[in-house]
Amino acid sequence: MTVWKWVLPFVWGLHALDASAGWLDEVGLELRFDDNLTRAQLDRDIKSDTALVVSAAAGTGYQLTDNGRLSLTLTLSGSAYQRYEGLNNLNAGLELAYRWKFGLGPYVPELRLSGSATRLDYRDAPRDGWLYLGEIAIAKRLSDRSGIRMSYRVEQRESDTVADRLRPAIAADVFDLTSQNLSFGGDYAIHPEYVFSAAYTIRDGDIVSTTRRNLPVFLASSAIAADPVFGSGRFAYKMKAITRSLSLGVSRVVGGQASFTLGYEYLDSRAKGGIDYEANLVRATYLYQF
């Protein structure tokens, strides 16, 4: 509630500053397959599933100066899983971003600062909470065909409730997570209608691995809670890990304002005690920008 006390006057002030602000709208539909949804190390614990994700973003942009643009965007997304329905979720977020272009034209560097707060509402109530993101990113278009970008992002996830402790001495806040992410990426038009994109990200922070009782994972973890979403006798373990990810995608322009993208992401996480896992994600995404 405190947040809204300053957000609403801020938005009102922006409208007073620039009554000609324009709406930014984007809608998307994504089919996502994850071959290791549990982020587990052992085959017996690995669960895969496919989710349908619907998203929309609407907001206002304020061109404050020739080079500076402030945008306030409301994001909505919903995911429906085929097998593990406890992961079905509906999220609503608010993002404030400031973009600065260092000059005139499409080839000058751009700086983007953003912060967002997203409400997470899962069918599995213990996963409900808030996700806060802060990001600084710089991007530069090298030519009509290519561009590069780099970003640093901090994430903090806070759950509404903490599950009952399995043991008095063991923390159970498995869905209270923090991480730092450093990402490098680029895109290249391989054809006037097709863009190839790639990104490499290093994430340092908490991960959640859901397994059966597992002593090595237990020893590496900082919090444990029952996780019935993946069946009885499953436990979510929170651990510190370094995760490296490589994402690749080919995006096709559909009618100028829309795109259809096939994407692949490889995740490799390594926690202390030799706990590591790999995951592969495949995405088919349609996005339309108004």
């Binding site: 984007e26 038009a189 995006s251 322009v253 559909v254 304002q257 795109s259 995404t285 920008q289």
Partner: peptide, 8 residues
């Protein structure tokens, strides 16, 4: 051309 269509 620099594309208008979004990239995920």
């Amino acid at each position: 051309r620099i594309r208008r269509a979004p990239i995920p």
